[in-house]
């Protein structure tokens, strides 16, 4: 039994278990039940973790910006906690993009990295949100922390449409979208199904991770409020 109500033990998270199971199923389907592509070989299977991770990263930063914008008007601490949680999970998914991308580029392009518009902008996005998390860590005052990080969260998310459109705006090595393409799906149906299933699974994983991170932030803030209220700061 917990000794304080500030950080209670939470019941088992069935939603997290569901997200893990669906994500595991997406990996299994991609590895064993989806054929490799003829020209690229097995390396093409990186698509099923690379593109969904990028989608989730964009979703996470978009929601971070939205929550930050609403916080600036409503000053609701729940919005700040959500923005913090979503940004942190977004950084994790962007890291996955930046790790899986070079592993795909090496066998196909012959190089791990190139200073191509989409790759470079994605790296910038990762740095901006890493800076966002560092900023949150160094400002002790709650209102100032929420205000500054809301502004940075909004500005950082402005990179997202540029990254998405970079393959159209710049001369780039990165391929055009294979699914969100004006000419229709550029893959066989079995690959398209795996692709969309992975998108669904990773979105569910994002929701579960943000949920867990948000619960942690809620309990941490409750404990800090309790400690602030005690005369000796809980020492």
């Amino acid at each position: 039994m917990p000794e304080t109500s500030a950080a209670p033990r939470r019941p088992f998270d069935w939603f997290a278990l569901l997200a893990v199971a669906v994500t595991a199923a997406a990996y299994v389907r991609a590895i064993w039940f989806t054929p490799p592509e003829m020209l690229q070989g097995y390396a093409q299977k990186i698509l099923y973790v690379h593109a969904p991770s990028a989608w989730v990263a964009f979703l996470a930063f978009g929601l971070t910006a939205l929550a930050g914008a609403f916080w600036l008007f409503l000053r609701d601490p729940r919005l700040d906690r959500f923005a913090e949680s979503s940004a942190e999970v977004g950084v994790v998914f962007t890291t996955a993009v930046l790790v899986s991308g070079p592993l795909w580029a090496k066998p196909i392009w012959g190089t791990w990295w190139t200073w191509d518009a989409r790759l470079t902008l994605t790296l910038f996005l990762w740095f901006v949100y890493l800076g966002y998390l560092v900023l949150r860590g160094v400002i002790p005052e709650r209102d100032a922390r929420a205000r500054l990080s809301a502004v940075l969260g909004i500005l950082g998310a402005l990179l997202v449409p540029f990254i998405h459109l970079s393959v159209y705006l710049f001369r780039t090595m990165h391929p055009m979208p294979v699914v969100a393409n004006p000419d229709g799906f550029q893959m066989p149906p079995v690959m398209v199904k795996t692709f969309f299933f992975a998108f669904f699974a990773f979105t569910l994983l994002y929701a579960a991770l943000v949920r867990a991170r948000y619960a942690f932030a809620t309990d941490r803030d409750a404990l800090e409020a309790t400690l602030d209220a005690t005369p000796d700061g809980g020492r």
Binding site: Y27, A43, I46, V49, A96, L103, W104
Partner: peptide
Amino acid sequence: YYQMAYAATI
């Protein structure tokens, strides 16, 4: 390469 990418993301 794909095995490494899958392992890294997991």
